[in-house]
Write a protein that binds this DNA or RNA. Structure first.
Lengths: 155, 155
DNA sequence: GTTTCTGCAAAGGTTTTGCAACAAA
DNA sequence: TTTGTTGCAAAACCTTTGCAGAAAC
């Protein structure tokens, strides 16, 4: 995890008169320990492997804090639950594609898309604050060869 | 409402061995009677003004049916509830912008965006099946003049 | 010492489901 | 008739909240 994550959270906490706690540190470290997207419940599981006394409520409250200070983004993967994405610090403009064959999530960046979105927004009379694209698509290789390294065999 | 909506639903119902019912007809007519986006609960309210005996469960079940046969799309407006959009028959490629000042939803179409999304998806090795963009933006006119015809005064 | 934070359990809100009666084909 | 559909109520699920004790500053 980048040092800047903890630094930025602490700056936010200080500016708001909030407090730095052991629980918040553990949750933030866990959230940013991989590049995987996760749900609140999945993060709770991972956090509890580090400190089993941390409550579900604290995880939810810390997630709100991290979204509020823009360290974490809520993303829509077309599933029932809210997912969180820890990769916006490295790739501030990225978007998501989900494979309808294997459910894998692919991140992509494209400067042309970003520019076009900006133009469209301004033409409509607005100033963009956040832009997100979600593409659902099927695997070309699976269609061609019948195999895909990510495809899990079905019963 | 276009006649094609009922026709397409009936074709789907027939192909699946399902049944046409008074409740489904009422729900479909209500859902497509305006171009407004709505939640399940909002649709239930509107439906009950026509037939107060229709149950919440039937509304939810019919919504699933309409999404499954692509007459209705579920859309993500960054709110807590699932919204449904009845306008994809007329504008199959449209996207959504929500104003962070007044919460109004603006639909927009752009062929360049659609083409770019297609290229990006294929370059990644996929065949696109659905693409959605959600832009959050602030009102330029409100920022410039302090007024916006859609802006509701705050207390 | 104050004020915020935590864990717990309960509550809240949306959506789904089991079931018996009902209705379509 | 057979099979799908409905309404009801309960359940399931995710998320938020009130509160008393604990911890940070």
């Amino acid at each position: 995890m980048e040092a800047s994550v903890i630094d930025r959270l602490n700056a936010f906490i200080a500016s708001k008169g909030l407090r730095r706690t052991k629980q918040r540190d553990t949750i933030v470290e866990t959230a940013f320990s991989t590049t995987d997207h996760f749900t609140a419940e999945e993060l709770l599981d991972r956090v509890r492997r580090v400190d089993s006394t941390i409550s579900r409520a604290t995880v939810y409250r810390t997630l709100s804090l991290l979204v509020e200070c823009h360290l974490l983004h809520q993303i829509d993967l077309g599933r029932d639950q809210t997912y969180y994405d820890p990769n916006f610090l490295d790739k501030p403009q990225h978007n998501h594609l989900t494979c309808t064959d294997c459910d894998r999530v692919v991140e992509f960046e494209d400067e042309h898309i970003a520019l076009l979105e900006d133009c469209i927004t301004r033409r409509l009379g607005f100033k963009p604050s956040s832009k997100s694209i979600h593409i659902k698509a099927s695997c070309e290789e699976l269609a061609r060869s019948g195999h895909c390294q990510y495809k899990v065999a079905k019963n």
